[in-house]
Amino acid sequence: MKIIVFSVIMLTMVVSIGYAAVGCTLNDPDRDIQRLFPEVTNYKTEFITIEERGGETLAKEIQEKLGDTFDPLYESLDVPYAFYTVLKGKDIIGYVHGVNQKGMYGGMQLILATDPEGKIIDFYYQKLSSPESKKFRSDAFTKQFVGLCLADFYARDLKGEIKDPSENSKQDYEATLRGLKKNLILYDEFMLGNRFDKEFILKEVSNAYAQ
């Protein structure tokens, strides 16, 4: 009897708190973050969902910025996105954040390290199910994203600039670009307070061409 009462109390507590789907966290955050930021002393972890920050309305905005719709299996609104704020003492020296993305052969996990202004410092695949994974994981491919920010994904034709490293995995290449753009949009939305406004950036580009 005591067990049943105890169980009901525990479950009631849980039901009242809410729930979330499973997101993309770093496998080994201490090691990964130290590799990305050698001067790090520690980091803060945050889990943020689209559901809690704006629900359907925010999901619609993000999909418009992305130019694609969410996959219900990989991108449900209750997926908690993990953001690691990298610290040196009390000072913020960067961020690390990852997303799940549907690939050709299964889910991929794309991890970005960015500086506090939103510029990519490093990019790697935490998970990639591909027979050509070595080509995708190679520095020759991943280092081409270093220095880019969300504005570049909005305004430039990155498919023309960063070539597909594979021979038969074009879908994984396109999924990588989509996943990185999604990652940066979420980072901008949740951590940078919408610093990179898509409409503004596109107008600037359009004006530059007009001149």
């Binding site: 525990m10 479950l11 002393t41 520690n42 980091y43 803060k44 610290l87």
Partner: peptide, 17 residues
């Protein structure tokens, strides 16, 4: 069975501890 998982990280100005 029915159950739950509660996972939490606690941090201060110097990060997670």
């Amino acid at each position: 069975s029915v159950g739950f998982e509660y996972f939490d990280k606690f941090s201060n100005d110097y990060g997670d501890f």
